[in-house]
Amino acid sequence: MSENKLVLGWREWLAFPELGIVQIKAKVDTGARTSCLHAYFVEPFERSGEAWVRFGIHPRQGNTKEEIHCEARVKDRRSVRDSGGHEELRYVIETPVSIGDQHTPVEVTLTDRDTMKFRVLLGRSGIGEQYVVDPARSYVQGKRKRRSARKGAR
């Protein structure tokens, strides 16, 4: 029943603590199955015999000076169709996401979203069964803190 679920607005502030991202604006997209994270470059490499990627993000729309460089183990590569019907082969990583006080692992594809308003799309698999989405509300799980999106930055 929905009375036991937490409410999300159509947009929320998230964090990806293992990637060093303390805050990033996301569109909650029930039309997307998988979540995706902006990555303006993605470089595959190998670590201890496993596939990894390093990638860079611009956590704030319109600000290409602020950069966060991340590394994560590759979980998969998948063909993803965007809302315009274009298919793209993307790297998939799994990393914890923090929404308000909740922390949960989520699969995320990496793609360049520099021209998009939101750096993250939180899809159905990231929303899971613990949330219900109220499309008339925004930032239900917390407002943006006035600081850098990068861990340790001022």
Rank of each mutant, 00 (worst) to 15 (best):
H103C: 10
A26Q: 08
I24K: 01
P44R: 14
F118C: 00
E129F: 09
H69Q: 13
R73Y: 03
D29K: 05
E43W: 08
E67S: 09
W52H: 14
S148E: 00
F45P: 12
V140F: 06
S148D: 04
A149P: 11
T115I: 07
L89F: 09
D112G: 01
T115A: 09
I57Y: 00
E107A: 13
Y91A: 03
K75D: 04
E94T: 11
L19P: 02
V7F: 13
I99E: 03
L37T: 04
D76P: 08
C70K: 10
L14V: 15
S79E: 14
W10D: 08
E3C: 08
H38T: 09
H38D: 15
N4E: 11
G126W: 02
V108K: 05
R144Y: 11
E94H: 03
L122W: 02
S125M: 09
H103D: 10
V42G: 07
V108F: 15
R33N: 13
D82R: 05
T64G: 06
V42R: 01
H103S: 09
F55S: 01
T64Q: 11
G123A: 11
A153G: 14
K27T: 05
A15F: 00
E46A: 11
I68Y: 01
V53A: 05
A136M: 15
K5C: 06
D82G: 07
Q130T: 14
D134W: 05
G123N: 04
A136Q: 12
S35M: 08
S48W: 10
R146M: 09
R73K: 15
G128Y: 11
K5M: 09
K145P: 00
V42Y: 08
A51H: 08
R73E: 14
L19N: 07
W13S: 01
M116P: 00
L89H: 03
D101I: 12
I57D: 02
E12Q: 02
G31P: 03
E66R: 08
T64E: 14
G152F: 10
V80G: 07
V140L: 02
T34Q: 06
Q102R: 10
D29H: 03
D112F: 01
R146H: 13
K151E: 12
W52C: 13
R47Y: 14
F16I: 07
P96F: 09
L121G: 05
R33W: 07
I68W: 04
R147K: 13
R113E: 13
R73M: 07
T34H: 05
L19M: 09
Q130W: 14
V7M: 15
I127W: 00
R60S: 12
I57K: 01
